[in-house]
């Protein structure tokens, strides 16, 4: 399970770009802070490598479960 803390995310898109499985997509709508939040639309492809959590500069991502 991928959880996103919307209060912490600043919408930088680093996760969208660097996830090797292209799990995230940027949402079309702006949230209340004016940010395009990433959405894990392809979550079933996630390998739980945790790279996104290591690269998110704002500690907004939690990937639950261990690497497959």
């Amino acid at each position: 399970m991928i959880k996103m803390d919307e209060d912490l995310c600043k919408g930088c898109n680093i996760c969208t770009e660097f996830c090797p499985r292209k799990v995230y997509e940027q949402s079309k709508e702006l949230d209340k802070k004016g940010v395009h939040l990433p959405v894990p639309v392809n979550e079933e492809k996630c390998k739980k490598c945790n790279l996104c959590a290591l690269m998110c500069p704002d500690q907004a991502i939690t990937v639950e479960g261990n690497e497959e």
Partner: peptide, 21 residues
Amino acid sequence: RMPTIFCAGCGNGIVINTFFN
């Protein structure tokens, strides 16, 4: 104290993570 004062996408946050790792 979070979110941090850093701009969106600033590298400082990544360095924080790699330090803990």
